[in-house]
Design a binder for these strands. Structure first.
Lengths: 163, 163
DNA sequence: GAGCAATTGTTATATTGTATCATTTCTATC
DNA sequence: GATAGAAATGATACAATATAACAATTGCTC
């Protein structure tokens, strides 16, 4: 996702975002062993449907009236763990929340920008940041397993709206 | 703190680390309005005494037998908030925990490396990482207020011990 | 359809963090 | 030193996030 499209207008057609993600997931599923059960799919769709990071209990609340009785928290966490492991969602550590991955299939660490006004989270691509982290780590003989980069601030849309 | 000294030997003289921090804090306090009350000081010393990030409830447990009855959680959080605001500790988002700042006085965002083996956390200085983040943000017209960088991995000491 | 692994259900509980209002302590000023 | 306002702390309750443990079910393979 380019820097310019990272924070789309608030009222854009978000259905397209979801469709893009789900079709990417379909491709993955067709190719191989991705057991995307109905529950997992519902959680993924829920996360994908939001540009705002959702907490596990947000998801839980919105899934309530699905089939029968509401899911237990542990079930949501289990679904999220699965989705995390398969690179379909990212955990936002500084929010204790989750956001859909914009590049499913390409397993990667996430660089996130988090708008403190509209609360939306955008995924960023930056070889420069990754390289700088790798260089620092190497200098300290530190073996990187999972870099977390979460940049809090104000997105271009909210900055523009503030004038 | 240089990359080489970021993760000192496990058995180094950690008293020196604490002393260095506390004397830096003393200087701050002498210079100006830093109301370092006994409670706040005890929490700071507790955090400074550990290379491992401490959760609020860890601190709570260790402070128990101080004066009279144990502190309430809210008191620990209040002390931590104060210390955060004055740049004496950093919050480790991915651990829900806190680590002493190694450069008190110089208000700054923290770049952290977190060893998943020994659980120690080291603060890193890297203009390159900061510049790369600033550049990415600028490209996306994103106004950075608080960059979070927490690099999980294995420190040089634990890597060496693993051979 | 029998056996095994993976998933989900159920219940309970652990961990992390805040809200609210009362009380105490500190500081500045008279 | 008395005193009033601000800052800090105490006390109680509760909210929000996350996991443990074990039972039941589903799906896959033979």
């Amino acid at each position: 996702m380019s820097a310019e499209s990272a924070f789309p207008p608030i009222d854009h057609d978000h259905g397209r975002c979801v469709d893009l993600l789900m079709s990417a997931v379909e491709r993955l599923r067709a190719e191989q062993t991705l057991r995307l059960t109905p529950q997992r799919r519902r959680v993924l769709e829920m996360v994908a449907a939001s540009h705002v990071a959702l907490g596990a209990y947000d998801i839980l609340a919105r899934l309530g009236g699905g089939n029968g009785r509401p899911m237990a928290p542990i079930s949501v966490y289990r679904a999220l763990d699965f989705l995390l492991q398969h690179g379909l969602v990212h955990r936002v550590e500084s929010l204790n929340a989750f956001i859909a991955c914009t590049r499913p299939g390409a397993r990667h660490d996430a660089l996130l920008m988090i708008c403190s006004v509209c609360r939306r989270v955008a995924e960023l691509q930056s070889p420069a940041i990754e390289a700088a982290i790798a260089a620092s780590a190497a200098a300290g003989h530190f073996l990187v397993t999972h870099p977390v980069v979460e940049i809090a601030g104000i997105c271009r849309v909210c900055r523009a709206a503030d004038r």
